[in-house]
Design a protein around this nucleic acid. Structure first.
Lengths: 343, 343
DNA sequence: TTGTATGCGTTATCAG
DNA sequence: CTGATAACGCATACAA
């Protein structure tokens, strides 16, 4: 055992009494090798404890076996005002779990990349020369320029969530309008007469879709106008929105909340206001996150199969990495209503 | 613009009319370079759109600018029985957030590495030849051999959570015993006469510490024996445990639950059993996760500053990466009691 | 089927 | 202060 240097292909070759090329072939599982040598090389590999140097390999193959999960926040990241909020949200974990479920079996690494508006150019540059083979993009802000930059640079990428502006990049998304309609139907079926809504930020596509989907469906049910308050997807903002909604419309008897976290907040406020759920006011959430089950009463909510969607995104990306000219293809998931106690 | 090849150091050198070495120096901010050329080189860099190739750089510097977050599950990962549970838990996100808060400013990447018992050797091998400069280890199972392997291989690493067996590796941890004692004190101060406990798995150090800490403190308060049921940190297991506890000890009037998620489950069961919280039975949780705030009644709980701890782990790791011979140093965080409604 | 030789893009050593 | 030149560890076109 020498002091510090790790065994290289060269060392293995020397031990096995063959050339570097042969060892390389064996290690990479190339067929055209004499079974005799094949055996010989493997034992030499075991004996030396050789493990391929990914850096060197990547340098020549131009493949890293890594994909980046880029979390794009268009605002400059001075401090971490959004990070804590974002990471604490079950959303992040569910996405990571879904990605890993397909990346791990494929032996590809996941590298986390947070980037603000100031980091777009840098990120694209790094990606272009092989930081990662591709990227799954979690684009938080509306009108994020990043997807466009990635497309221009011809970097294999898949978006989670439809981009605000059309961009030639594959994405996976939920049929948000349909989901919101499901919620509206439920509320209508319960016989709610005064329906309200707590929406997400007005500039996020997913949020917009839920708003239009809900309005369209309630209109169909004869509700011309739906009082709406908006939040930013946090529980606290949900509380605020519910309070304002209740203040303006005391006889509200049904409310659709654009995500479970805000719905949790709404539930708290309703309770404090002495309203029983669902008897006095029915509440339906969105996402079917773990929060929905923990809520009291348990939340009737629109199931958002985020893990499946993330897994699909990973698959799409892997395909695209194999074949950069693969057709841009997106898949839209259909939401379902999960009925529990709140509506 | 050529077809596909990205600009290299060589290209920049040609444009600037200097040698590769000089460009390298300028790009890496080495002082000994004529201001004239300095300027010249930078404009050439801009002009060509040059961005350094990390792979090539790493190959020679033996530094990647990446640290791994390895999630170690000692059971072989046939399928993903644990992944979904783990990623859905706020724990994961909080750790990632904390790590990123120090890694990002330091411009170091975070690579996710899940590994089962079958992957330990592979992981250590990869880490040794520079997959990453170091590792933050989230060791789920009791008696995980991984920390030992990392130490033997002299890989810069920091554990989140004290290892079951002493290992010469830095770690950050919470004073779990103290935290549990805080809970006991609170319950005693409320005048609880019949105190119970819902613990975590018996073989996880953090869980053990909470058990012994709680028992010791309750004993101090005159409770010789504390009925205990155990769960696995999921809400569902918390429900089960609470049910069994209640069945065996109907006149229970105080319970300490080893994490918030299980506490959430306990709350549900207590309510279904017609017990008012905290009037009939007081509940104190552990972690102060977002679930605690969402609970009804809001959970009195032991604050576990996971983000801070993760951030500290990242700092420790960075130090160790700079100086592999740095002293092994661990830091223990002191928990505090967050009093809300449940106790 | 196997070996030889070359190149991947950088950094680092060492003369000038 | 600057420029050749040699590694870094591996894959592969080409020759044998």
């Amino acid at each position: 055992m020498q002091s510090h240097r790790l065994p290289t292909l060269e060392d293995v070759a020397r031990v096995a009494g063959v050339s570097r090329a042969t060892v390389s072939r064996v290690v990479n599982g190339i067929r055209n090798v004499d079974p005799q040598l094949h055996e010989l090389v493997w034992t030499a590999v075991e004996q030396t404890g050789y493990v391929p140097n990914k850096m060197a390999r990547s340098l020549v193959t131009r493949r890293t076996g890594t994909v980046a999960l880029v979390v794009s926040d268009s605002e400059t990241h001075d401090d971490d005002p959004f990070m804590s909020r974002f990471f604490a949200d079950p959303y992040f974990g569910r996405v990571v779990g879904g990605l890993m479920s397909v990346l791990r079996p494929a032996s590809v690494q996941l590298a986390l990349q947070m980037v603000g508006a100031d980091g777009h150019k840098r990120l694209v540059g790094d990606l272009r020369n092989g930081q990662a083979d591709g990227a799954v993009v979690l684009s938080l802000p509306a009108r994020d320029p990043l997807p466009g930059l990635l497309a221009d640079a011809r970097i294999p990428a898949v978006l989670i969530g439809r981009p605000a502006d059309p961009v030639p990049i594959s994405y996976v998304d939920l049929a948000n309008e349909t989901g919101a309609a499901l919620a509206a139907d439920r509320l209508a079926a319960r016989g709610c007469r005064q329906i309200g809504m707590i929406s997400g930020p007005a500039d996020v596509p997913a949020s917009q879709d839920r708003i239009t989907g809900f309005r369209r469906a309630t209109a169909r049910h004869g509700h011309a106008w739906v009082p709406t308050a908006s939040g930013n997807f946090t529980q606290e903002s949900g509380e605020r929105a519910m309070r304002s909604l209740l203040a303006g419309h005391p006889q509200l008897d049904g409310v659709f909340v654009a995500n479970d976290l805000m719905a949790l907040g709404a539930l708290l406020v309703l309770r404090d206001a002495g309203r029983r759920v669902p008897e006095d006011v029915a509440v339906v959430g969105f996402d079917d996150s773990s929060a929905a089950l923990a809520a009291r009463p348990a939340l009737t909510t629109v199931r958002h199969p985020l893990e499946d969607m993330a897994a699909e995104a990973a698959k799409l990306l892997l395909v695209r990495v194999e074949d950069p000219d693969a057709r841009v293809s997106s898949v839209i998931y259909e939401p379902t209503l999960v009925v529990r106690q709140s509506a």
